[in-house]
Computed example of a mutant assay.
Amino acid sequence: MPSDRIDPRLHRVVRLGRTLSIATLVILLMLMASGLGIWLSPGLVERVIVPRIGLAGHPVALDGASLSAGLAISAIPLGILAYGLLQVRQIFRDFGRGEIISALLAVRLERFGAAVALQGLLAPFIGAALSIALTLNNPPGTRAIAVSISSHDVVAVIVGLLVIGVGAVMREAARIAEENASFV
């Protein structure tokens, strides 16, 4: 929608949407680069990943095979994160065009919620898979599987479900708005 046709009360939302669309893309690229790049440095993996998955103080093998497996496993949640953030970016782009309530925006919101919920649901399994990958080449008796569920995982599922619910409500609001517009 051309900016001269946008309701003047929405100009702030439009500017904010355009800015946040760019910011979301920058954040997405930084998260992808750091999330995948960490696997290029065994020292970073040992300082950042190992304690996060519950293997602090436990011997880990940081050879090429385990680092490659860790990269492949980490690509799963990073892919989900990228998908979710791309949905958010599209929402902000819609705002930047003055689209505040639409069925498509509601669908994008639901998709983002699904990505957040899926992240929370998968986190314990990803952590367990990473613990196996990083200890598989250890001698027998020193291999490990670490399974943990954090409050962050639970909150991610709840927030994701909430966002899905808000998206469903917005889809209904868009349907009602479209129906009302057809009466005029």
Rank of each mutant, 00 (worst) to 15 (best):
M30G: 02
L161V: 06
R111D: 05
L86M: 15
R93I: 05
T24P: 13
G54F: 03
L122I: 09
I149A: 12
V45E: 13
T24I: 07
R97L: 04
L78M: 01
S41A: 13
G98C: 09
R108D: 11
D153E: 13
G120K: 15
G160P: 11
M1A: 13
A106M: 03
A177N: 10
G165E: 04
F95V: 14
L10T: 06
L81T: 08
E172T: 14
A146T: 02
T19V: 12
V157I: 14
G79P: 00
T19R: 12
S151N: 01
L67C: 01
I132C: 07
A56H: 09
R89D: 02
P59T: 09
I53G: 08
G141C: 11
V107A: 14
S41V: 02
Q90N: 04
R89F: 01
F112W: 12
I149V: 15
T135F: 14
L161A: 13
I53Q: 11
V163F: 15
V13N: 07
R15C: 00
V50D: 11
P2G: 10
V48A: 03
G43S: 10
R18G: 08
I91G: 08
R47I: 02
V169P: 00
L28W: 11
T142F: 13
S21L: 00
G79R: 05
G96F: 04
G64W: 05
G120S: 13
F125N: 06
G17D: 03
P77G: 07
S34N: 00
G167H: 04
I132P: 14
A61N: 04
A103D: 10
I76G: 00
R143H: 01
R12F: 11
I164G: 07
I22M: 13
G120F: 15
V60M: 06
A33L: 10
F125Q: 03
L85G: 08
R108H: 15
A56V: 07
T142S: 08
I176S: 02
I49K: 08
P2N: 10
L134E: 02
Q87T: 00
I53S: 07
S182M: 12
